[in-house]
Amino acid sequence: MNAQVHPDPAPALLETRQLVVGYGGRPVLRDFDFRLLPGEVLCLIGHNGAGKSTLLKTLFGLVARQEGQVLLDGQPLAVVEPRRLCAAGVSLVPEGRGVFPGLTVAETMKMGLWAAGVAEGERQARLDWVMSVLPALRQFYGRRAGTLSGGQQQMVSIGRALLSRPRCLLMDEPSIGLAPKLFQDLLQPIRQLQRETGMAILLVEQNVKQALKISDRVVVMKSGAIIREALPAELDDNAKLMELY
C-alpha cells in the first residue's frame, strides 16, 4: 500500500527565519522566526521595547536586517525595501500617522497614488474605491492635514495605505492618541474590507482589548522573543494579559 502524501501547507505571506536586527550594536531581535498567514488578522502585542515595531519596520524595509531571511510568499527577499514591498501588495500605516501637516488631504492622496505606482488613468477609480471604504474622508478632503484631529489624520494615513489595494496591511500602533471608540470606528471598516477581500493584516498595538476584538490570532513578544501564540478568546481577561506583561 502506498503511503499517503500530504501536500505542503501554503507558504506564509510574510515570514522571517533566524532574523537578527539591532541598533548601535545592540540586538533587538535575535534568531527570530515569525509567520503572517494569508488572509489573517494577526495582533502583535507586548511591553514597550519588546521589538514589535522593529519587526514591522524590518518587514517593510525601513530597518535593515543584520542576519537571517525575510520571505514573501515563501521566497527569500535578497533586498527588502518599501517600493518593492508596495509593488508586491504590502502597505504600511506608520506609527505617528506620517502625514505632512502642510498638505491637504487631496494633495496627500495625489502623492500616495503616485508613490503606489497607480497608472494615471486608474487614479480616480482607485481614489473612489478608498472613499467607499472610508467615506468620512470626503468631509475634510480639502483641508490641510495639520488642521485635522488625531482620528482624522489616522484615517488619512489608512486611506493613503489603501491606495495600492494591498493584499497585506501592516499597521503600527494606530490607536495612539485615540479614544477606544474612535479606534474601533476606524478599525471596523478595515476589518470589513479584510473579510471581503481576504487581505492579511499585521496589527502592532498597545490597546490590547480593542485590538483583540478584530484579530484572528495573537502573538505576544517580550524582550525580542515570542513568548506565546494564542487565540483572542484565550486572552479575554485582564488577569491572563497581566501574566504576559
Rank of each mutant, 00 (worst) to 15 (best):
E95G: 14
Q194V: 02
L113C: 15
E67R: 13
F100T: 13
L162E: 14
T104W: 13
S223A: 09
Q188M: 05
D237A: 03
Q152G: 13
H6L: 08
Q124D: 15
S215L: 07
V28G: 12
K181I: 11
L170P: 04
G61S: 14
L29N: 05
Q184N: 05
M155N: 13
Q188W: 07
F34D: 05
A10I: 02
V21R: 06
P7N: 08
S175T: 06
R165I: 09
R17M: 02
G51T: 00
N207L: 02
G177S: 08
Q153G: 13
L187Y: 09
I190Y: 10
A115V: 12
V105E: 15
C168F: 06
R65Y: 11
E234S: 11
S53T: 08
P82Y: 01
L127P: 03
Q152C: 13
L182G: 07
V208N: 00
G25N: 04
Q194N: 01
A115E: 15
R195C: 12
N2S: 10
V99D: 12
Q139F: 00
F60A: 13
V118T: 06
S53H: 03
G68W: 03
S164P: 13
E205H: 00
G98A: 15
A78E: 14
F34P: 09
G74P: 12
P9S: 00
L113I: 06
L14S: 08
R165W: 08
E95N: 02
L212G: 04
I201C: 10
I176H: 02
D185Y: 05
Q206K: 03
P180E: 11
R30P: 00
N2V: 04
P135H: 00
K240S: 09
L56P: 10
Q206T: 04
E234K: 08
E205S: 03
E173G: 03
Q152R: 06
L163M: 11
Q124C: 02
Q184M: 15
A125V: 02
A239R: 15
L170S: 12
P166Q: 03
L85A: 10
A78Q: 15
K209F: 02
A200N: 04
C168M: 06
F60D: 10
A225C: 09
Y23S: 03
V5M: 08
R83T: 11
G49V: 06
L113D: 15
V21A: 04
G98Y: 08
V21Q: 00
P11Q: 01
G117M: 13
V208L: 04
P7C: 02
K213T: 12
G159C: 12
F32R: 01
G146N: 15
V5G: 09
L77E: 15
E67M: 07
G98C: 08
L113R: 11
G117N: 13
G98D: 11
D236Q: 10
I201L: 14
E229S: 03
D33I: 00
N207D: 07
G24W: 06
S175P: 08
